[in-house]
Amino acid sequence: MPSLKVEILIQIKEGFLFCLSEPFRQFKIGDSYIPKSFYKTVGRLEKEGLIKKIKKKKEVHLRLTEQGKGFINKHRKSVLRASPAWDKKWRIVIFDIPENERNLRDRLRRYLKTLGYGNVQRSIWISPHDFTKIIRRYAEKMKLFEYIFQITAENFQGFSEAMLVEKFWDIKEIDRKYLKLIERYQKKKKQLEGMIKNSPGRKDISNKIFYEYLLWDYRDILNKDPHLPPELLPSDWGGDQARQFVKSFLQS
């Protein structure tokens, strides 16, 4: 899942977030974000020179600066890269948070899910990626350090890697979404080509809008993808096909 910083920049770029009046009606913020963190991040983005505020009557509108546009372009290229090599180890997070801290417990579950962890049981989560330092910082920040335990394992007796993936992640559903994305936009591309033939003067803007929508929908699936190592995925993984499909438009 992208950080709140990246989410805000992308939303401004796409035109979904352009005004600070009642932003939560316009901006789909994840459960882990609160209004205070939203406004704080907007202020930090302005200080970093990535956005600028423009006052229009009683409203404050947001615009990307050239530096902000460059940041988003760099981010978009990064989402098309393949996952890093796997060290063949599994990371397990176990927690026992008291009932009177139920809200923090639920927030931790959502946070682990956004990192791509698979749910073994309600208080046991697993990932092939090393998020040890990230989880430690989160635990310290939320004052949950004494309740969270992290374990690194190399294998599970009685379970193959394929069995673990099938049991703890809905890979088939994510694969289906990637393939549906390709199918849907292949049809849209043919429709677009017909429109451009009738209105050649709108070719550039039409291609840009098409690509923006494609990237938006692709990123939505990426947010749900646990980004498992290639060794744990089927050889015809839809995520690889979708990445190449999107990349072909970026390079054209």
Rank of each mutant, 00 (worst) to 15 (best):
V246D: 10
S21A: 12
G116A: 03
P98T: 09
I134H: 10
I205S: 10
N73K: 14
L4S: 00
V165R: 00
G239E: 06
E146W: 07
L112S: 01
Y211K: 14
I171W: 00
E154M: 09
D31N: 11
R136T: 13
S32R: 08
S127T: 14
F131V: 03
L179D: 13
G70T: 10
G49M: 10
W237N: 05
Y178P: 05
G118N: 02
F71D: 00
R81M: 12
M195K: 15
V79W: 06
L112P: 01
E59I: 10
V6K: 03
K113Y: 08
D31G: 13
A85Y: 06
I182Y: 04
P35F: 06
G239A: 11
P230H: 07
W169T: 02
L9R: 01
F245M: 12
T114N: 06
K247I: 05
N73Y: 04
L144A: 09
M1I: 01
A153F: 04
K167H: 14
Q121S: 09
Q11R: 07
S123I: 08
G201N: 07
L62I: 09
I10T: 07
F210L: 12
E7W: 03
Q186E: 13
S199M: 11
F18Q: 11
I97C: 06
Q244H: 11
R219V: 02
L104T: 02
G118V: 02
N223V: 10
A162T: 12
I221Q: 07
H61A: 06
E46D: 12
Y218G: 05
V120D: 01
I34W: 02
Q186A: 04
D240P: 00
Y39M: 05
N73D: 14
R122S: 09
M163I: 09
N223L: 09
P200K: 07
H75Q: 09
H129G: 01
G43C: 07
P128M: 05
S83Y: 06
K247P: 03
Q251H: 10
L215V: 11
N207I: 12
R63E: 15
N198L: 15
F245H: 08
F27H: 02
C19Q: 09
S32T: 10
H61N: 15
F149R: 13
L45N: 01
L108S: 04
R105A: 06
F131M: 05
Q26Y: 14
E146K: 15
F159N: 06
S83M: 08
K141Q: 11
S127P: 02
T132C: 08
P234M: 08
Y185P: 01
I171M: 09
Q186S: 09
R243N: 08
L250A: 14
K47E: 15
K36T: 13
D96A: 11
V120P: 02
G158P: 14
A85P: 03
I205F: 08
I34H: 06
N73S: 12
Q241C: 05
L4I: 09
V79S: 03
N100Q: 12
R202C: 07
I10N: 05
R184M: 10
D130P: 06
R63H: 13
K55R: 15
R184I: 12
R243S: 12
D87R: 09
V120Q: 04
E161G: 00
S21K: 15
K208I: 10
S248Y: 12
F168S: 00
D170M: 04
L4K: 00
